[in-house]
Design a protein around this nucleic acid. Structure first.
Length: 638
RNA sequence: GGCGGUGUAGCUCAGUAGGCUAGAGCAUGCGGCUCAUAUCCGCAGUGUCCGGGGUUCGACUCCCUGCACCGCCA
C-alpha cells in the first residue's frame, strides 16, 4: 500500500493561532484527506514548538512558569484545528518526553560522527536581554528593548558542521527538481547556497537559558532551536524503532510558509544527512496572506479576526476560500468582502443551487426517489459525463502538486456544465408529456450522479459539505472513509433510494443594501419622431445647476478622456469629467464652469464623481460653458 | 548595497516551456428560462499584458535596461 506522510511546522507558542497557521494546517489537511481518498495509508502531523528564551520571557511576563505557559498556548493550537475540520493524526509538543529522548539520540549520533564541535565566538551581548544581538538588530547601536549599548562578549558553544554538506545539498537539489517547490523557492535556496555556508550554532549555556533540551554530551548546555524543533518530524514517528517511523519515513512531505524556508531548505536536509536518514520527498512552500482590514467588517468597533470568519460563515466556506483564492506559493489577499463574494458566487449560486434544483426536481417528478437510467444516453448526457471525468482527472493531477485552485476550477467547470445541462435538457418541459418520461428519468438521474461525484471530489476541501450532500443522496459516509475508486464512480446511486431536499447548503449572504427605488417618473409628453421630450417646469426645477471654480485638475491614470477635478461650489466637490481629450488639466484650473450639482454620485475608473460639468458639443470638440462675468463660487443657475 | 519576486480588463487574479481575434470570477448592460437559494443560461464589451531597447518571420511570453511595489540577506 502507498504511504503518505504530511507535516506542518510545529508552531512557536509565543503567539496565538492566526491566519498563517490556519492556512498551512488546512493545506496539510487537504493533502492528507486527498491521499486517503486515493486509498493511501496516511499520517498527518502538527504540533507546537515550546523551548527557547522568548517563551521564558513571555511566561515571565504572564507571571507563569515556562511549562504552564507553553501548556496554555499549545492547548489553544490543539483546540483550534478541530474547529477548522482539520483531522491530524498526531499533535506533537517539543516538551514531550519521547521527543526529548529522540533529540538527544540524534545529537549524540551526530556528535559521535564528528559533525558537532565546540568553539568560541565573540558577539554583542545585551545583559538586560541575556542574549546576543547581530548588528542589524540594534537600533542606533543599542538594544531595542533596553536602550543601552550591548557589551562585547565571548561565549563558547557547540556548532553543527553544516558547511561540510553544502556541495551535497546543491547536488541533491539539482538532481531532484521538485524537492523544493514551487520552483521560485528552490531557486532561492540555490541562491543562498552560492555563498559559502557557515556552520550552525546549536547550543546555549544553561546558565543563560535553562528552558531547553540538555545536550547528551555536555550537561552545561541545552540545544538551541533547530536540533530541537526540526527533529519533531521524526520523533513523532518514534524514530528510530517505531513502527510508524518504519512505515512512513521517508514518504514525507513538509508544508511551510516562506518565512522558514532557510531552516527547512538548508538546515534540515543537512541535519538529516548528518544523522544518516533518507531525505524527505518534497518541501512545499507557500506565500503570505495579506489581510485587508479595510475590508473586514467591524462590529462594536472591534476588528474582525480572519479566524472568526470561519465560524461566522462556516468552516467549509472558509476552507474553500483559502484554497481557491491563493495560488500555492504566491501571496494572496484576504478580506471578508472577498470571502463573501466567493461564498455567494461559487458556493451558493453554483454548487448549492445546482444541488437544490436537482433535488427539487427529483422530489417533484419522482417523489424524491432516485430514478433509473431508462433512455440511451444522448450526446448531451455523454458530454456532461465526460466533463465529470475530466474534473476528476484534473483533481488527481493537480492536488498532489498543491494546485488546489486549478483542481477547484476544474470541479467548478463541471458544476457550470451541469447547470447548462439543466437548461438544455429542460426537465420541466419533458415533464409535461408522458411520452418523455424515460428521457426525464435519465436526465434527473444524470444530474444526481453529477452531484454525487462532485461531492466526492470536493470532500478533501470541504468535508462537511461532501458529507451533507452524500447523506441527502442516500449514500451517507464519513468523509475520511470515502474512496475515489468506489464512491467516485459514475452510476452507483441506488435506484429507488429516497433523497431528501433539506435546507440550502450555502444560504446567500446579502450584502447590498436594497437599491433605492427609482421614483416612478410621471408620464412625460413625447413628441413624434423621437425628438426631445417636453418637460414640465416642475421637473426642470429639480435640477440644481451651479457655477463652480476648478481648484485642482489631474489626469486619471490609464484613461484618455477622464480628468479628476476638485471644484469649489461653495463646498468642494470631486468630479470626474470626460474632457481629457480636448482640455489639459493646466488650462482648467481657476476656470469657472457650469455644473449639475445634485446628480447622483457615480464611480468612474474607481473615482467617485459628485457632479457633472456641462459642455457644448461642437462636432468632436467640447466647449466649456462659463458665465460672461465671473460670479461667486456656488452661484445658482436658472 | 546584494539576491529574489511581483507589475495582465473598473476590482481580484489566472495564463502563455514565442504563433491565429489575450482569459476567469466579480461588477456593468441587454436578452432567455422558471426546476432552483431573485438562482441558472446566453450575448455584449472595454486591455499600450508597467516603460524603453534587443533577439525573431513573429514577444504579453526570451534577453538587456529603466520605473514602482514587496520580500530575504548583508
Amino acid at each position: 500500500m502507498n504511504h503518505f506522510y504530511i507535516t506542518t511546522p510545529i508552531y512557536y507558542v509565543n503567539a496565538e493561532p492566526h491566519m498563517g497557521h490556519a492556512y498551512t494546517t488546512i493545506v496539510a489537511d487537504v493533502m492528507n484527506r486527498f491521499h486517503r481518498l486515493l486509498g493511501y495509508r496516511t499520517f498527518f502531523l502538527t504540533g507546537t514548538d515550546e523551548h527557547g528564551d522568548k517563551i521564558v520571557q513571555a511566561a515571565r511576563g504572564a507571571g507563569m512558569d515556562p511549562k504552564s505557559y507553553a501548556d496554555r498556548i499549545s492547548r489553544m493550537f490543539r483546540d483550534t484545528w478541530p474547529t477548522l475540520n482539520v483531522r491530524n493524526d498526531r499533535f506533537i509538543r517539543t516538551t514531550d518526553p519521547e521527543h526529548i529522548r529522540v533529540v538527544q539520540a540524534i545529537l549524540q549520533h551526530v556528535y559521535d560522527a564528528g559533525d558537532i564541535y565546540f568553539s568560541h565566538y565573540r558577539g554583542l551581548y545585551c545583559v538586560g536581554c541575556e542574549r546576543f544581538y547581530t548588528e542589524r538588530e540594534l537600533v542606533d547601536g543599542k538594544c531595542p528593548d533596553h536602550d543601552r549599548e550591548p557589551v562585547e562578549r565571548e561565549e563558547a558553544n557547540y556548532f553543527f558542521r553544516m558547511s561540510k554538506y553544502q556541495q551535497w545539498l546543491i547536488d541533491t537539489i539539482n538532481d531532484q527538481p521538485a524537492l523544493i517547490r514551487p520552483e521560485r523557492y528552490r531557486n532561492e535556496v540555490l541562491a543562498f547556497l552560492r555563498e559559502p555556508l557557515e556552520d550552525l550554532c546549536i547550543s546555549r549555556p544553561k546558565e543563560r537559558l535553562a528552558w531547553g533540551i540538555p545536550l547528551p554530551f555536555d550537561d552545561q548546555y541545552v540545544t538551541y532551536v533547530w536540533f530541537d524543533a526540526l527533529i519533531n518530524y521524526v520523533s513523532a514517528l518514534g524514530y528510530p524503532d517505531g513502527s510508524l517511523y518504519r512505515e512512513f519515513w521517508p514518504a514525507v512531505q513538509h508544508t511551510i510558509a516562506k518565512d522558514i524556508l532557510k531552516p527547512h531548505g538548508i538546515y534540515w536536509p543537512t541535519m538529516i544527512k548528518a544523522a544518516g536518514l533518507p531525505l524527505f520527498q518534497h518541501l512545499n512552500v507557500h506565500g503570505y496572506w495579506k489581510i485587508d482590514e479595510g475590508k473586514m467588517s467591524k462590529s462594536k468597533g472591534k476588528v474582525v479576526r480572519p479566524l472568526d470568519l470561519a465560524s461566522k460563515y462556516g468552516v467549509d466556506a472558509f476552507r474553500y476560500f483559502l484554497l481557491r483564492e491563493m495560488v500555492f506559493g504566491l501571496d494572496a489577499n484576504f478580506s471578508e468582502e472577498a470571502l463573501v463574494q466567493r461564498l455567494n458566487a461559487d458556493l451558493a449560486n453554483d454548487l448549492g443551487n445546482l444541488f437544490s434544483r436537482t433535488l427539487a426536481m427529483t422530489d417533484k417528478y419522482f417523489a424524491g426517489k432516485v430514478p433509473p437510467f431508462t433512455a440511451t444516453a444522448t450526446e448531451l448526457d455523454e458530454q456532461l459525463q465526460q466533463q465529470v471525468a475530466r474534473a476528476a482527472a484534473e483533481v488527481v493531477a493537480e492536488v498532489p502538486k498543491f494546485g488546489f485552485h486549478k483542481a477547484l476550477m476544474a470541479i467548478w467547470e463541471c458544476l457550470n456544465a451541469a447547470n447548462r445541462y439543466v437548461d438544455h435538457a429542460a426537465p420541466w418541459n419533458l415533464a409535461k408529456h408522458p411520452a418523455h418520461q424515460d428521457r426525464l428519468k435519465t436526465v434527473i438521474r444524470t444530474l444526481l450522479e453529477v452531484n454525487k461525484v462532485t461531492a466526492v471530489l470536493i470532500a478533501p476541501f470541504m468535508p462537511e459539505t461532501a458529507e451533507k450532500i452524500l447523506a441527502r443522496l442516500g449514500c451517507s459516509k464519513p468523509s475520511l472513509e470515502l474512496r475515489l475508486a468506489d464512491d467516485g464512480q459514475w452510476g452507483t446511486l441506488e435506484e429507488g433510494r429516497a433523497v431528501s431536499k433539506g435546507e440550502a447548503l450555502f444560504p446567500r449572504i446579502e450584502t447590498k443594501e436594497p437599491k433605492p427605488e427609482r421614483q416612478a417618473s410621471p408620464p412625460v409628453a413625447q413628441e413624434a419622431e423621437g425628438r426631445s421630450r417636453l418637460l414640465p417646469f416642475d421637473r426642470f426645477k429639480e435640477l440644481d445647476l451651479r457655477v463652480g471654480v476648478v481648484k485642482h485638475a489631474e489626469r486619471i491614470p490609464k484613461s484618455k478622456k477622464l480628468l479628476l477635478l476638485k471644484v469649489d461650489l461653495g463646498e468642494e466637490r470631486q468630479v470626474v469629467a470626460g474632457i481629457g481629450q480636448t482640455h489639459t488639466p493646466e488650462e482648467l484650473i481657476g476656470r469657472q464652469v457650469l455644473m449639475v450639482a445634485n446628480l447622483e454620485p457615480a464611480k468612474l475608473m474607481g473615482y467617485e464623481s459628485q457632479g457633472m460639468i456641462l459642455v457644448a458639443e461642437d462636432g468632436e470638440r467640447l466647449r466649456l460653458l462659463t458665465p460672461e462675468q465671473p460670479v461667486k463660487a456656488g452661484a445658482s443657475v436658472s
